[in-house]
Design a protein around this nucleic acid. Structure first.
Lengths: 96, 96
DNA sequence: CACTCAAATTGATAATTGTCGATATGATGT
DNA sequence: ACATCATATCGACAATTATCAATTTGAGTG
C-alpha cells in the first residue's frame, strides 16, 4: 500500500465517520447504516474501499458481516507519511 | 484543520509528488513545473490546495514565489490521525 | 425447496476534482 | 510608461467519486 491510496481512503467525511465507529470495536453493516444515516449500498461501497486499502478487517457471523478498523495499518501508514513528508520531525525517535 | 481536509490534500498523486519536492527545500513554482511535467496552472492549483490546508509556506523573492513543505503541520496531522484511528498504538508513548 | 434477512453488486446521476489553454495580476528592468 | 517574466486566476472539459434505488448473492430457517 502506498501513501496516496491511504490518503484517498481517508479523504471522505463519511468514510472517516465509519472508521471512527470501527476504531475500537466490531460492528456489522446494518449498525453502521443506522449510526451514520447513509444508505446500505453507500456504506458497503465505503467499506469496500477501506477493505481494499487494508484498513479494515472482516468477520462473518451468521447472516451478518462485522467490520473493525485495522489500527496497525493506520499506524504504519501514518509512519509512512511521517517518513515521506516530515522526516526531520522523526530524527532521534524510535523510527528506523 | 481537520483530518478530512488533511487527507484530501494528500489524496492526489501529483500533489504528493509536489510535497516530496518541497519536503526539505524551498522551490519556486517554475522549478516545480519543470520537475513534475504538469502545466503551470495545474501546479498553482495544487499549491493553492496545499496552502489552504496549511501544509506549505510561501516566500516571495523578486518575481518568483518559493514554497516549502510545512513538516510541523504534517506531523501534527499525522498525530491527529493516530489519535483518532490508532489510539491503542499510542498508549505509553509521549503523546498527551 | 421456498422464504427471509443481511450485505454486496449494478446502474444511473449529481457533485467534486484534476487538467489545460487563455488571460489577468504583479514585480522588475529599460 | 512599457515590456518582460513568473505566478495566479478563469473558463471549459474530462475523469473520478459519492450517493441512492433496484437487484443479486448468500446464509440461515421453516
Amino acid at each position: 500500500m502506498n501513501s496516496v491510496t491511504f490518503a484517498k481512503a481517508m479523504a471522505d467525511n463519511t468514510r472517516q465517520q465509519i472508521m471512527h465507529l470501527l476504531c475500537c470495536q466490531w460492528i456489522c453493516v446494518g449498525d453502521i447504516v443506522d449510526q451514520t444515516g447513509v444508505s446500505q449500498p453507500t456504506v458497503s461501497h465505503h467499506l469496500g474501499i477501506l477493505r481494499v486499502a487494508g484498513l479494515v478487517s472482516t468477520r462473518r457471523e451468521g447472516k451478518q458481516v462485522f467490520y473493525t478498523l485495522n489500527q496497525d495499518a493506520v499506524a504504519v501508514c501514518c509512519g509512512m507519511l511521517m517518513q515521506n513528508f516530515a522526516p526531520e520531525k522523526l530524527e532521534a525517535d524510535g523510527e528506523s
